[in-house]
Amino acid sequence: MSVLGRVLLEVSIGVSIMIAVATAVVVGRQRLVVTLREFTDRLRDVAPTAAVLTVVLLFNGIARQVVPELSWIINQNVGFVNLNLTWVIYDLEGEFLVWLQSFANPTFTSYFSFIYIYGYIFLLVFPVVAYFALPNSRPLRELLAAYTLNYVLGLICYVVIIAYGPRNMMPELVQGLLFDTYPRYQYLTRQVNRNTNVFPSLHTSLSVTVALLAYRSRAVYPRWHPVAFTLAVSVVLSTMYLGIHWATDVVAGIVLAWLCVVLASRLVGRWSPVGYLRDHFRDRGWLGSRPPEP
């Protein structure tokens, strides 16, 4: 098996265990029984939103391959665009990273490395399970819509902006951290990240998105909300501690998260991809003449 395969297996087993435990503790048996009974109905409710997210993720996967070249073409050749921000950010906060690294110790390194890979994936996947277990599909649809927006807006930033992270500018500072200590994780991260794409931090924005939505759903999941909050803060800190993101990227990530949550709650329920298709194509007779849903 390839190294990537081994790492993927390792991570999926780890995260699955975490999700199983969290489901037992947070969701509870009662909800699971009901969910199983209504499984297909609920799936039908969220299918359109999930489909949009899937399309965006697939497109994202392909686009990531060409984004760096596209960014360089734009930034080096279009005279008025110069969003190669590495130096601006480094000049602004290089000292902060040095200060942050002064707290470095092996315990923190292990903790934050674990959080950066396992904690982050768990934080993103678990709410999908938890919200699916709710009779009302709205929280899940909002979550998926917010993820979609994060990826779309993030990708646009990545095309326009070039920025290398701290580990690329101050390698001596972050030596012995994540990729030196656990180089195998790099097989995984390079599948999703290119090194010029650090502004904004998607680790931050997606984690904060989850935390904000967890706060909203605190009435139904009182146990999840503090866990999500703690994990999100840990993920945010880990990106900086491990030298992957600048504080600037993190701030931009938080703003992006807030924007996505606000937009998602406005869009969900008002605009649906199925409704859009129906409205557009029914008149032309492409979708047959099904009666409109109530």
């Binding site: 760096p68 590495t86 690329n168």
Partner: peptide, 27 residues
């Protein structure tokens, strides 16, 4: 990049404003 950082700091110390522009290897 480490040599560049060192040079940048030393240029700054003698009163020359220097910035670093890291580019992908092809660029």
């Amino acid at each position: 990049i480490r040599i560049a950082n060192d040079l940048q700091a030393n240029l700054a110390a003698v009163g020359i404003e220097a910035s670093i522009d890291p580019l992908s290897v092809e660029e």
